[in-house]
């Protein structure tokens, strides 16, 4: 399959050495791909105004800021704690609700487990739309709808989670051997029952690890959606940033770092035990 032309036309024979095949050529394809990629890169580079010179010029005044960043204000930590806790609460709630909603949706979104083409296509279209909206857009809109605070953040994260988990789990279902499902259907089970009994146990490990992965993503995301007022650390980051308080910013970053690294190690330990 690798050499498309050779597969279709049969192997061509070398004139000098009958019996040896001619080396299949796809130089033109590779060349075209390189040109296209380079062109996109140049276009994008112009768009984002790549400017290496500015980095040199700014270096001297920036070095002061960087030195400040390397000296976190540990006294600021008590003020970080409530925001850190709220971030954690938001992430836990959003992961729990999001994964509970995702499991049935994933079965509706997989070719292997949903026998109705219409429903399948509709589910996938909706899920593609849900996944296409950046979390910050959800957060900004939901802050307007339900007001500033953790609730809007939790809801934005739930939408974000459902998008990711449904995609990954439905792909896991697509790749699963449908043998047991066939057996359950042959025993007279309806599709929902057969999916529950035959497919759910098969994808439970990958579901569990997706849930833990999205939990880690949520911690990171929930620090950020606060920038538009959706609760958590983001609000605090926005405050100290606007007043150039780099020692405090540094303390916040350090706390995020510690929280994420601790949770990541706990979650990878959990993953090993659960799977």
């Amino acid at each position: 399959m690798s050499a498309g032309t050779a597969g279709k036309t049969g192997i061509q024979v070398s004139p000098a050495h009958p019996g040896r095949p001619v080396k299949p050529r796809h130089g033109a394809q590779v060349g075209a791909a390189v040109v296209v990629l380079a062109a996109i890169t140049v276009w994008a580079g112009i768009g984002v105004q790549i400017n290496i010179a500015a980095i040199w010029e700014n270096w001297s005044n920036a070095s002061g800021n960087i030195i400040q960043l390397l000296q976190p204000d540990y006294g600021f930590f008590p003020k970080v704690i409530p925001a850190l806790v709220e971030t954690l609460q938001m992430a836990v709630i959003a992961t729990a609700v999001g994964s509970a909603l995702s499991l049935p949706l994933a079965f509706l979104a997989s070719r292997a487990t949903n026998p109705r083409p219409g429903l399948l296509r509709a589910t996938r279209l909706v899920m593609n739309i849900v996944r296409a909206v950046p979390d910050i857009l959800y957060a900004a809109i939901l802050v307007a709808v339900v007001g500033v605070g953790a609730l809007s953040g939790v809801m934005a994260l739930i939408l974000f989670n459902v998008g990711i988990i449904v995609k990954l789990v439905s792909e896991a279902l697509d790749g699963e051997d449908p043998g047991a499902l066939e057996a359950a259907l042959a025993a007279g089970a309806s599709w929902p029952k057969a999916n529950r009994a035959a497919m759910l146990p098969q994808i439970l490990p990958s579901f569990a690890s997706q849930v833990l992965y999205t939990f880690e993503l949520n911690i990171r995301a929930s620090t950020v959606i606060g920038l538009v007022g959706a609760g958590g650390l983001g609000i605090l980051i926005d405050n100290v940033r606007s007043f150039f308080r780099y020692h405090e910013l540094s303390m916040i970053i350090l706390s995020i770092l510690a929280l994420v690294l601790v949770l990541e190690s706990v979650s990878s330990a959990l993953r090993r035990k659960l799977v």
């Binding site: 043998g179 047991a180 066939e182 057996a183 359950a184 259907l185 042959a186 025993a187 007279g188 089970a189 309806s190 029952k193 057969a194 009994a197 035959a198 497919m199 146990p201 098969q202 439970l204 490990p205």
Partner: peptide
């Protein structure tokens, strides 16, 4: 189908769950 059992070439068990859960699939109907 509930009155007709079927045995397959590739066994078609849900491999990640227990033997008894697989046998209980015969009771789904």
């Amino acid at each position: 189908r509930s009155n007709v059992g079927m045995v397959f070439q590739s066994f078609n068990l849900a491999r990640r769950t227990t033997v008894i859960n697989n046998v209980l699939m015969g009771r789904l109907y």
